[in-house]
Design a protein around this nucleic acid. Structure first.
Lengths: 242, 242
DNA sequence: CGTTCATTTGACAAAACTCAATGCCTGTGG
DNA sequence: CCACAGGCATTGAGTTTTGTCAAATGAACG
């Protein structure tokens, strides 16, 4: 399942988030210094997995945090009904592996081929003690995630199907601007099933919402996972909440 | 509007959350040492406001973080439509004042009479540099909030009205066990309007869901804001997710 | 004690879900 | 490289749930 990638390679650890304090445009920036990246490289291991691989199971003993450098992952919880509930989609420069009382809160699974730094929690704590600036970076990242999650709850809580999907597309476009692809070209890394779960709709409603957006000329579908955003302004308008 | 409370009083700063590592039962604990509490007391100011007071406005320059010691607050964003969207309810031992790029992400407002330590961000940063252990505590607290927010998104995303209300009641019971009140006795600090907003329903649907729960004998209403939880097991069953 | 606002209740309309059937893509194996 | 199978996605029809509008009741406050 997991293959260790041999040399240093071109990937380095990276954490991306908007800082607390004013920094001009308020957009996200790289939070890790070169020295911090090196420290993390020393302490961790670069792992690659293929798509649909479980990195860690819900309830399992939490030993690692993962810093994604390429690919997309999701975290989910299984309900008593056997239903899968997605709590987050995670992209390069994100951290995954949230734990509580020593056990993982959700299952972490890759959606595409994925490469990530697997950081032992012990090692991370050791680095944190030596480097107080890294704490602040992690705090930033967590605040970033918290805002994202609150926005998610907001979107999902009150909004019709079209607004939720519009909002979702804007978010993906923003969080996962695919390399080697023109602006507005979106390659969804996840299945309809996962989208539906995340935005709190049925699979069919997601289809219908996409159909509605296409009819209005706001997007264009080329295959189930290839979507072109034609009219960003209209999309933002439809999304309502930012 | 804001009255400074004179002496040290019986309230001290307090941050409550479940730690990362295994600690027995996995429940939340006090994260601040006495020394840290003292440092925060020196750096901050205890403020008291009456109900429905805005502590800070969305978009305003972020200068303080608040550590609630008594009372309940909410944070919300105003949409273009003029609608109010609640992102969080906050209780004693919580922190509020999330900012982005130097400005508050949401408006913070008291729901009841409220007392809180108002901590200048500069002072907080200074303390954090001297005391690396406090960083970890803040990380814990943020993870705690993140889990809460993800759970909120989950609840709100897919669940019928009754399940959402059941889940909401369980959460309030857990987060805000009112002093001087018997177990299962719940005094909602917020109006129906706020509950509806938070769980993503209309006010009328909240009423109907409460009515349904009462008919099933799971709760009993004594006045709009006094609710007795009669059958916790059934409530948990209905809530589904956790 | 009356006024005002919050909450509840009822009737109807709109939106989303479910079930079912069809079409399309993908990935596998020949 | 092509054919096939299975799963994924879309579409349609009917049902359920929730939102909306309106009115009545109840609580809170001056």
């Amino acid at each position: 399942m997991k293959d260790d990638v041999s040399p240093a390679g071109r990937y380095r650890p990276s954490i991306f988030a908007a800082p607390f304090r004013k920094t001009g445009d308020g957009s996200a920036v790289e939070l890790l210094s070169v020295a911090e990246q090196d420290a993390l490289i020393d302490a961790s291991r670069l792992v690659s997995v293929r798509r649909n691989t479980v990195l860690y199971p819900e309830g399992g003993t939490a030993e690692f945090v993962y810093n994604i450098v390429s690919g997309v992952a999701e975290t989910y919880q299984l309900l008593a009904s056997g239903q899968k509930r997605i709590t987050a989609f995670l992209f390069p420069r994100d951290l995954m592996g949230l734990s509580l009382n020593g056990t993982y809160v959700a299952t972490g699974q890759s959606l595409t081929a994925l490469t990530a730094y697997r950081i032992p929690l012990d090692a991370l704590e050791a680095i944190l003690e030596r480097d107080p600036r890294l704490d602040l970076s992690l705090l930033c990242k967590l605040c970033h995630e918290l805002r994202r999650s609150q926005h998610h709850a907001l979107t999902v809580g009150k909004n019709d199907a079209v607004a939720r999907i519009a909002s979702f597309l804007l978010w993906i476009e923003h969080a996962y601007a695919l390399p080697e692809r023109a602006a507005g070209e979106l390659a969804l890394p996840m299945a309809r099933h996962d989208v539906a779960d995340y935005v709190g709709l049925s699979v069919e409603s997601v289809s219908r919402a996409l159909h509605a957006l296409e009819t209005q000329g706001v997007i264009r579908r080329k295959g189930p996972r290839l979507i072109t955003l034609l009219d960003m302004a209209a999309l933002r308008e439809l999304a309502g909440t930012q």
